[in-house]
Computed example of a mutant assay.
Amino acid sequence: MIGRLVDLRPRMHAMRRRRTPLPKGRTVKVVKRINNNAVMCTDSKGRSVVAFGKGIAFAIDKETGDLPLAAIERTFYNVDEHYLALLEELSPRVLAVSAEIIQAADLELPYELSHNAVLALADHITFALQRAKRGITVQMPLAYDVAQMYPIEYKVGVFALRRIFDGLNVELAESEGVGIAMCLLNARLAPENEAETDAEAREDERLIGAIIARIEKTYGIEVDRHGFEFARFATHIHYLFGRIRTGEPMNTDGAELYGTVRGEMGRSAEVLDYACVLIEEHFGCQISDSEKLYVLMHIHRISHPRV
């Protein structure tokens, strides 16, 4: 929740203050210098790790190639080659803010993020800062949908805007918060059982295809599967399926409006009934009136593209 996320800031500051100092005299072997603030090292277990710290390269012993642990502020394991090159361009301040945002996200999100999430977000924030400097505002046509379908990611995005303002003294447009939410979604770590995930994705597409086919048959139209309204509909349905699978509580906002709106939607309500039977039989669940309301609105938009 927004309030809860905002409260994370003093908690994270306290965590930094309580951090146990690294033992003096201990070192790691530097394999490659990336720039003044980042180096590739080998840890005590022989694993490759990127060490980051302000001016860290100047702390390397020129004779032995050893780096004192005390010079390291952050470490990153399993970094993709793409992000190794990116480290040369990232500001230490942006990276620090990005790390705090990901730390907050880890406490809120019900899934794991990629090892490269901090670097990917730092790259995203860097471009957002450049846009702000040039006075460029990015339009996010799916902003409402992201806020409705991915509320946790969206609220982390709102928190991120505040953290960026506090840490970098730059006020980004609200739309950038949506971009950060989408960045988190893209950084979501793939489930271990990819075969099961692929099967679920195919089944989701089958159900969506059946609903679209019923819309086309009912209204005698051909739905543009590359159009904006179809994208909004498919995204909403995918998220609905995901929440059903994880047991996340159904949305209850606007349930009192369902009966009234349904009475005004004509044949779209018939398509909704068909869709609900498909979904409820497949998942063995009951869809709330609030969820029905949102699906109904999407069905109506697709079937009335000029409305």
Rank of each mutant, 00 (worst) to 15 (best):
261 V>D: 10
72 I>H: 06
202 R>G: 09
118 V>D: 08
182 M>R: 12
7 D>Q: 15
244 I>E: 01
128 A>P: 00
13 H>N: 13
259 G>T: 15
30 V>R: 07
174 E>A: 13
258 Y>P: 01
117 A>T: 04
94 V>F: 06
83 Y>Q: 01
283 F>N: 04
229 E>F: 11
31 V>S: 09
180 I>E: 00
198 D>E: 15
17 R>E: 08
29 K>Y: 04
51 A>H: 07
141 P>R: 00
300 H>T: 01
91 S>K: 05
78 N>Q: 12
75 T>Q: 12
208 I>Q: 03
81 E>F: 14
138 V>S: 10
80 D>T: 07
293 L>D: 00
232 R>N: 04
70 A>P: 07
86 L>V: 10
187 A>N: 06
178 V>T: 08
302 I>P: 00
145 D>M: 09
38 A>T: 10
204 D>A: 15
135 G>D: 01
7 D>L: 14
159 F>W: 06
109 L>Y: 05
295 V>N: 03
52 F>C: 15
289 D>V: 05
286 Q>L: 14
214 R>G: 08
134 R>Y: 14
42 T>H: 08
294 Y>T: 07
265 M>R: 07
290 S>P: 00
70 A>L: 10
124 H>P: 02
177 G>P: 05
259 G>S: 15
175 S>T: 11
149 M>H: 12
296 L>H: 00
100 E>Q: 10
251 N>G: 05
136 I>H: 09
22 L>G: 08
75 T>G: 12
248 E>L: 14
147 A>W: 10
1 M>E: 04
236 H>P: 00
247 G>E: 07
304 H>A: 01
302 I>S: 01
297 M>Y: 05
1 M>I: 03
153 E>I: 05
1 M>S: 08
69 L>E: 02
221 I>G: 02
135 G>M: 05
177 G>W: 03
151 P>D: 00
273 D>E: 13
88 E>M: 05
223 V>A: 02
99 A>R: 10
171 E>V: 13
37 N>R: 07
79 V>P: 06
166 D>P: 06
19 R>A: 12
172 L>D: 03
132 A>I: 06
263 G>R: 09
141 P>Q: 01
74 R>A: 11
251 N>Q: 11
